[in-house]
Amino acid sequence: VTLFVALYDYEARTEDDLSFHKGSKFQILNSSEGDWWEARSLTTGETGYIPSNYVAPV
Results as ranks from 00 to 15, higher is better:
49 Y>N: 08
38 E>G: 04
6 A>C: 04
35 D>Q: 10
9 D>M: 03
41 S>C: 14
29 L>G: 03
17 D>P: 02
28 I>Y: 02
8 Y>D: 06
50 I>A: 00
55 V>C: 03
12 A>R: 08
13 R>H: 10
54 Y>E: 01
20 F>Q: 00
38 E>C: 15
7 L>Q: 04
36 W>V: 07
48 G>C: 04
26 F>A: 00
56 A>V: 14
50 I>G: 00
57 P>T: 06
14 T>C: 14
44 T>Q: 03
14 T>W: 14
51 P>V: 01
41 S>W: 04
30 N>I: 07
24 S>M: 15
56 A>N: 05
11 E>W: 09
34 G>N: 13
2 T>V: 13
52 S>P: 07
22 K>N: 04
45 G>C: 08
8 Y>W: 12
11 E>S: 10
9 D>F: 04
11 E>C: 12
38 E>Y: 15
40 R>M: 14
51 P>M: 07
15 E>A: 13
5 V>E: 09
14 T>I: 06
51 P>N: 08
49 Y>A: 05
30 N>F: 07
22 K>V: 10
7 L>D: 01
57 P>H: 06
18 L>Q: 03
42 L>G: 02
46 E>H: 09
14 T>V: 07
1 V>Y: 14
15 E>G: 13
49 Y>C: 11
18 L>Y: 05
47 T>D: 04
39 A>S: 02
14 T>G: 15
34 G>H: 12
23 G>M: 03
57 P>N: 05
22 K>G: 04
24 S>F: 11
24 S>A: 14
31 S>E: 09
52 S>R: 11
50 I>S: 00
44 T>N: 08
45 G>H: 06
53 N>P: 05
12 A>N: 05
48 G>T: 02
21 H>N: 13
6 A>M: 01
47 T>H: 08
24 S>K: 03
2 T>K: 12
15 E>K: 13
3 L>G: 03
12 A>Q: 06
13 R>V: 12
8 Y>S: 06
11 E>G: 05
2 T>H: 12
33 E>Q: 14
16 D>F: 15
39 A>K: 00
42 L>W: 08
25 K>D: 03
52 S>D: 02
48 G>D: 00
16 D>K: 15
32 S>N: 11
41 S>L: 14
34 G>P: 15
19 S>R: 04
38 E>M: 15
54 Y>R: 06
40 R>S: 06
25 K>R: 11
1 V>L: 13
9 D>W: 03
33 E>N: 15
54 Y>Q: 05
35 D>W: 09
57 P>E: 09
11 E>H: 11
38 E>D: 04
19 S>K: 04
49 Y>M: 14
35 D>E: 13
2 T>M: 13
10 Y>F: 09
38 E>H: 14
31 S>D: 13
9 D>P: 06
14 T>H: 14
10 Y>N: 02
40 R>W: 10
29 L>N: 04
7 L>A: 02
26 F>V: 03
17 D>K: 15
3 L>I: 15
15 E>P: 13
48 G>S: 02
19 S>P: 05
32 S>E: 11
11 E>I: 13
8 Y>N: 06
6 A>F: 01
14 T>Q: 11
55 V>F: 09
29 L>A: 05
49 Y>E: 03
14 T>S: 14
46 E>N: 08
55 V>L: 12
33 E>H: 14
54 Y>N: 03
25 K>M: 15
16 D>I: 13
27 Q>V: 15
21 H>P: 10
7 L>T: 04
58 V>M: 12
20 F>C: 03
55 V>G: 01
50 I>L: 07
25 K>G: 05
52 S>L: 04
51 P>S: 04
8 Y>I: 06
40 R>T: 13
1 V>W: 14
53 N>H: 13
50 I>P: 01
23 G>A: 03
58 V>L: 13
18 L>M: 13
18 L>F: 11
29 L>S: 05
48 G>R: 01
44 T>L: 03
2 T>P: 12
32 S>D: 11
38 E>P: 05
30 N>K: 08
11 E>N: 09
54 Y>M: 11
33 E>M: 14
38 E>Q: 12
46 E>M: 10
58 V>Q: 08
46 E>G: 05
40 R>F: 14
50 I>C: 03
13 R>K: 13
50 I>F: 01
51 P>H: 07
1 V>K: 11
41 S>R: 07
30 N>W: 07
51 P>T: 02
46 E>L: 11
24 S>N: 14
15 E>I: 10
4 F>C: 07
37 W>E: 01
31 S>R: 12
32 S>V: 10
3 L>V: 14
4 F>P: 00
24 S>Q: 15
54 Y>P: 01
43 T>R: 08
55 V>E: 01
38 E>K: 11
20 F>D: 00
27 Q>Y: 14
36 W>H: 06
42 L>M: 11
15 E>Y: 09
25 K>I: 15
12 A>G: 12
37 W>F: 07
42 L>D: 05
45 G>F: 06
28 I>M: 04
12 A>D: 02
50 I>W: 02
42 L>Q: 06
54 Y>V: 05
56 A>L: 09
27 Q>F: 14
42 L>F: 07
21 H>D: 09
11 E>Y: 10
58 V>T: 07
2 T>E: 12
27 Q>P: 00
18 L>G: 00
23 G>S: 03
25 K>N: 07
20 F>I: 03
1 V>S: 12
33 E>A: 14
40 R>C: 10
28 I>S: 01
9 D>C: 07
3 L>M: 10
33 E>R: 15
51 P>Q: 05
56 A>E: 11
50 I>Q: 00
9 D>L: 03
16 D>A: 14
5 V>T: 05
21 H>I: 13
23 G>V: 01
32 S>M: 12
58 V>A: 10
58 V>R: 02
13 R>A: 11
21 H>A: 13
46 E>K: 11
35 D>H: 10
41 S>Q: 07
6 A>I: 02
48 G>V: 03
40 R>L: 14
43 T>N: 10
23 G>Y: 05
31 S>H: 11
56 A>T: 12
8 Y>F: 11
25 K>E: 10
6 A>W: 01
30 N>Y: 07
36 W>K: 11
30 N>L: 06
17 D>H: 15
9 D>I: 02
15 E>M: 10
33 E>V: 11
14 T>F: 15
30 N>D: 13
